[in-house]
Amino acid sequence: MKEKIVTIVMAVIFVCMGLFFGYTLLNKSDGLCELPVSEVTGGERGMLGIDKNINESNIDQYLAREDSVYRDMRMLKDVANYEAIGGDSYLSGYVKGFEVIPYPYLAEVKGLPEAVGKAYSGKTLFKQNEDGTYTANYEESLSILEYLFPKDKNIFLMCGGGGYAGMTKNLLVALGWNKDRIYNVGGYWNYEGNNKVEIKRTVNGKDVYDFWKVNYHNIDFDNLTRVQ
């Protein structure tokens, strides 16, 4: 009798273990944690569209995800004089894993503070209309955007202060991207994490920029087909 009870108990234990391992194997995840909802923060930062749940303070927790892309929207050397308002016209550093695509090449920059002077005013992939919609300037404009910002991925955007990243999110959403999968992480100047890649260094008292470290996406407008 005692032996039967032991046998039954052992059998039950083995069945439970089998079910457990079977469930674990069948539902094996790639280890990615679920992302919090994309939600704009409050205050002045909220006016730039910076995210409340994923921003400079915690982006380190969400780097190197296979289901995501990371884009820094600054120019290597911005035409606008951001030093005039305490900023940095140079891309003096970035967060590891972010690839640089200048927002000024995507659409016109509007609404800069007077002190910085004029922004980049050259060719852009899109033109912003008065009603907030965008019109492609080139036949390849949308496909370039789809390549750089895949719609089937989560998109993390960053820049210096959060402004270009916010403008990029507005552009993408206006063109049909899912706003819930786009996070304006904010600005590199507020980033204090462990994944800084320093670009700027000082040699003999002179500032030197190691732009060769930057994973940079150039857009060659001369090889694109202008929309008539």
Partner: peptide, 14 residues
């Protein structure tokens, strides 16, 4: 007052 670069702002707070 501490200020920073921000790329899009309705009324410059300075």
């Amino acid at each position: 007052y501490t200020y920073n670069n921000y790329c899009s702002f309705t009324i410059p707070c300075d």
